[in-house]
Design a binder for these strands. Structure first.
Lengths: 210, 210
DNA sequence: TAGATTGTTAATCGATTAACAATC
DNA sequence: TAGATTGTTAATCGATTAACAATC
């Protein structure tokens, strides 16, 4: 199943929550398509690949669809995640509100300098040495890498040694990982650079925005 | 020109800096392919689309290639950027080190509560009311949105009114923007959700990782 | 030269879109 | 029923890869 399809599934889900809060009981493929910026065909195709069905004339029931999407995406279960690196980015992630409503919780952060922000009421910042054992003991499956570039590969290795299966990597390097380990990269500088390219390219020439 | 191509160009550039620091004078399409995880064909195809040429047997000169990539991507010129929202994420971005080496500088942050982190030596946090005028006066072309979801569309509108052409949006909603405005979305919860999906899907079934 | 690598064309692959029969 | 929407198949589109002649 392609990554793009799953991303769209998440977007449908977000949109559905908004429709729900607006009082919608059912939606049509047209509504969802509009909401996330794809064609209605795409919506129906995506749904049919996961056996999500609607009524031939009544569209899709919002609550049913949401329940099924949450089940497919795994967001009906809680997931615990750790962060390596408690610098600027790491601490912002620890405090980030957006994970909660997807049932995702950051349970611990690790840093070589664990004095960083060890505050009561917040998530503990532990010494990096303890990470592997913590991962193992708490059966953590997903880790976030928010350490300097040079340390990223080592952190990834330790995460994998502890049993982590998926990594969200903020370091602008390609991690070498074992077979079957899932890595998503977020490269902030690259995102900006990309925007800069597309606003600088002369629009006239038929090039420009994709 | 497709967004994916430009992203790869940025990645080649990153890899080239690393090759350069290792003392490489020239590289082959094979080296670059390995470094960023694509096929050598892809590398040569990408380069040929931008008139980046090498030597039929000697590969590509690292310094020349870097200079040309920086020119194409616009990273040879400095770019000033603003941030809306000086909460956790906004302040982490202000302090983020990774923009500098791409010649990108955050020159100001804006928040309705501008008392947040107005510290000397750092970037000033100004009242949100002043944003539009600041954008206009300083000819800012790119803005980052790191405000709560509900405020994001309004912020985008004000940015556009000030003359901003590109937006990096961290709010998990689809922004409605004018023709020709470039938007890149970074949705942190979605990235994690996506990882969770792929590590949860039973690997055996031929599905799994893409 | 012989061998290796580029640049480019053609083939392949996968993803998106259009079309339409089924049917509520 | 007539009209509208789904579910699915076929067509299209674009991007990636393979192949190979050119050539350093």
């Amino acid at each position: 199943m392609s990554k793009h399809t799953i991303i769209r599934l998440s977007r449908y889900k977000n949109a559905l929550y908004r429709f729900e809060s607006l009082g919608f009981v059912k939606v049509f493929s047209d509504n969802l398509a509009d909401a996330i910026g794809v064609t209605p065909s795409q919506v129906r195709k995506d749904f049919s690949m996961f056996g999500l069905s609607g009524n031939k004339r009544g569209g899709y029931k919002v609550d049913e669809l949401l329940a099924k999407l949450n089940e497919i995406l795994g967001t009906n279960k809680a997931h615990n995640v750790i962060v390596a690196g408690a610098g600027n980015l790491g601490s912002a992630l620890i405090k980030y509100k957006g994970f909660e409503k997807e049932n995702i919780k950051i349970t611990a952060a690790f840093d070589i300098d664990h004095s960083k922000g060890e505050r009561a009421g917040e998530i503990p910042v532990k010494p990096f040495d303890e990470m592997q054992e913590y991962v193992r003991q708490n059966d953590i499956r997903v880790g976030i890498i928010a350490v300097p570039d040079m340390a990223a590969q080592h952190v990834a290795d330790v995460m994998m040694a502890g049993g982590i299966k998926g990594i969200l990597n903020f370091a602008p390097i390609r991690l070498r990982v074992d077979e079957g380990i899932v890595v998503n990269n977020v490269n902030l500088a690259l995102e900006l650079e990309n925007i800069i390219y597309f606003i600088c390219v002369p629009m006239g020439s038929g090039k420009g925005i994709k």
